[in-house]
Amino acid sequence: MNIEQARFNMIEQQIRPWDVLDSSVLSLLAMVKREDFVPAAYRSMAFMDLEVPLPDGQCMLAPRVEARMLQELNVHKHEKVLEIGAGSGFMAALLAHKAQRVVSLEIRPELAALAAQNLRRAGITNAEVRQGDGTLGCSQDTPFDAIVLSGSVASVPDKLLSQLKPGGRLIAIVGQEPVMRAVLVTQGADGRFNSKELFDTVAPRLDGFGELSRFQF
């Protein structure tokens, strides 16, 4: 496999047509080596338009979904970012190039170790992986300029919204299969939250984020 050609094809045939047009995001995807964050057994799938399997039954989001979320979050160099669900560490690596500091929470020990190892190997020093329950966020480091949930939830917990700065934003994939949407929530200066639906997609549920209760008849 010609890796650079595969990377180019991923960007031009999957990501750019999905309305990812921010040149800084496209350049980052060309630079950060996605294949180094994919388990060796699945390296041939690194640039495919699908979710790549990870240990413990988990997976990486499809490249176009990661790219679109990164673009919509619009992270700046002075900002502190919280990620829920480290996976292989790839999203944390992308965020680290755009932010001042990244904290990535991963509840599964094997994945937390994998993500931390991948980030170290990539020479990224401003992203820290912690094993912990993402539903609780990271209160000791609040507030955050931006929060990204690298997986889906039935609804966005107030606990996470409370950890945003005024003017901060959170992006998550919200809903239940087969209908889910990426949603951007922004906190105004008055403390109120505004929600904007961005695009339809489907993603695996994040650990610990329960389902909405349903009436029983």
Rank of each mutant, 00 (worst) to 15 (best):
V81R: 01
P109I: 10
A30R: 01
S150K: 02
A67P: 06
R7K: 06
M69P: 04
A46D: 00
M91R: 08
A96F: 00
D49I: 13
P204H: 12
E51L: 12
P53Y: 15
Q176F: 11
F47S: 05
A96T: 05
W18N: 08
F215Y: 13
E4H: 05
H76M: 13
R181W: 14
M1A: 13
Y42A: 09
H76F: 11
A40R: 06
L111T: 02
Q100W: 10
R169A: 10
E66N: 07
K80R: 10
R43V: 09
N2R: 06
V103A: 08
V156I: 07
A116P: 08
I171A: 09
V174Y: 14
E177N: 05
A30M: 01
G89M: 08
Q131A: 13
Q58Y: 07
L70N: 09
E83D: 05
M69L: 10
A115E: 05
R16E: 13
G208M: 15
D158S: 10
L94Y: 09
A40H: 04
G168L: 02
G132W: 01
E12H: 11
L198W: 12
F215L: 15
P55E: 07
L50F: 12
P157I: 05
E79K: 03
G151P: 12
S24I: 10
E197Q: 14
P166L: 09
F47Y: 13
D22P: 10
V183E: 10
L160E: 00
N2W: 03
G132E: 01
K33G: 01
A127H: 02
L161G: 06
Q216E: 15
V65Q: 07
A154G: 15
R192P: 07
D158K: 14
P204T: 14
S104W: 12
L29M: 01
R130G: 12
R43E: 07
N9M: 02
P178V: 11
